[in-house]
Computed example of a mutant assay.
Amino acid sequence: MSISRPDADETTSLLFNQSLEKGLTVLRAFSAQRRTMTIAEVADAAAINKSSAQRMVFTLEQLGYLRKHPQTRRYQLTPRVMEIGFNYLAANPLIEVANPFLSELTKVTTETTCLTEPDLLDMVYIARFVSAHFVPVHMPIGSRIPMYCTGSGRAYLSALPEDEALAVIERSDRASHTVHTRTAVADILDMLREARRRGYAVNSEELFLGDMTIAAPVLGGSGRPVGAIHVVAPTSRWSREEAERRLAPPLLQCARAVSSSVRAMG
């Protein structure tokens, strides 16, 4: 499966560096499904020719971002790749502002709480406070989840103007991840309107079986959403009605406090 460019319009500029694009595409080609690759596999995954793949891999190896196994001759990422992501997390003021509130929310609810930010059609985990209770799905920092079928994604979309939210939904793949996934555009829009009215969105086993989340948007200085906070409420411990009754109030209080702090930063 090839990795497409995030925005084709960016390639029209004479300043656009295609070699840098290829190098980043090679790094992004490695994943849980492709932990190690040969040069030919890299070329296929990154949708570039073998000669370009060889140059990119050699350069990334020299820079310390890739290494080659001495026996298998297959390439894999090195820990140096994490430096770029860590620098983003360390420099992100939203994380710094939200962390104490997330910690308190986990203490109050005794459940895992998370902060996500939007990127294209996904929400990306940027902070997480794990409770002592079992959670059915491990979502480390950097994990990506689609907006259309998740609590945090719908919370974020509910705070956008409806035409903008509709554009995101229509561009999404809208695959059925479980038997509970809602994929019809009209159904998702109805859920966004309900989330807008209540102040929070709910995902009940639409992405992973056994997983339920309740999420509220974080609003920036212009009143536009900048992210979302959600509480994990596994269906093994919570019914939807009980989760909304007991978890939604402290979640909303947390989201409002983080939003106020974000606005205070200017």
Rank of each mutant, 00 (worst) to 15 (best):
R246Y: 05
T183F: 08
P140L: 11
R35M: 03
L120P: 08
P136M: 03
A43G: 11
C114Q: 03
M265S: 09
R263F: 14
R28W: 05
R34H: 15
D173H: 12
A159D: 03
P234N: 04
H180L: 02
L219R: 13
D187I: 10
C149L: 05
L89V: 13
L77T: 06
Q18I: 14
L102H: 06
V130S: 02
M265C: 10
N87T: 07
A32T: 10
D173Q: 14
H138K: 09
S158N: 05
M212R: 01
H177R: 15
I3G: 02
A165E: 08
E10G: 04
L89C: 08
H133I: 01
S13W: 08
H180M: 10
E83M: 11
I145D: 01
R67A: 13
A233K: 03
V108T: 12
H177A: 13
V26N: 04
T36M: 05
H177S: 07
E61H: 07
C254E: 05
V218K: 01
E206T: 07
A165D: 11
I145L: 11
P140G: 13
R174A: 12
E104Q: 14
G220N: 13
I3R: 05
D122H: 14
L166N: 08
A8H: 09
L166E: 11
P79G: 12
L89S: 11
R74N: 14
S13L: 13
A159L: 09
A159S: 11
L120W: 03
A155I: 04
V137C: 00
G142T: 10
Q71W: 09
Q54C: 06
A155K: 00
S103M: 14
L209W: 01
H138D: 15
L27Y: 04
E164W: 00
E162P: 13
D163R: 14
I95D: 03
I169W: 01
G23P: 02
L14E: 14
G266F: 06
T25Q: 09
H138L: 12
L89D: 06
L14N: 13
L219P: 03
G153F: 05
L63S: 13
I3V: 14
R256S: 15
A195Q: 01
I39A: 12
M212S: 02
R193I: 03
V231H: 02
T59S: 06
P225L: 01
T36I: 04
A40P: 01
V179P: 00
A184H: 06
R182S: 06
D187K: 12
Q253Y: 03
D173L: 15
L14C: 11
R5T: 12
A90L: 15
A43C: 11
G153K: 04
A47R: 09
T59M: 10
S4H: 08
N17F: 02
G151N: 05
R224N: 11
T235I: 09
A127R: 00
E206H: 03
P100R: 05
K50T: 12
R263A: 04
M265T: 09
A43N: 05
R28Y: 12
S4W: 07
G266A: 10
A47N: 12
D44F: 06
M123Y: 00
P249T: 07
A155Q: 02
F134C: 01
L63P: 07
R193D: 10
F208N: 02
N203D: 15
S4L: 10
L247R: 03
A175I: 14
R73P: 09
L24D: 00
L247M: 14
G266I: 10
A155Y: 05
S176H: 14
P217Y: 02
I188S: 07
T106Y: 00
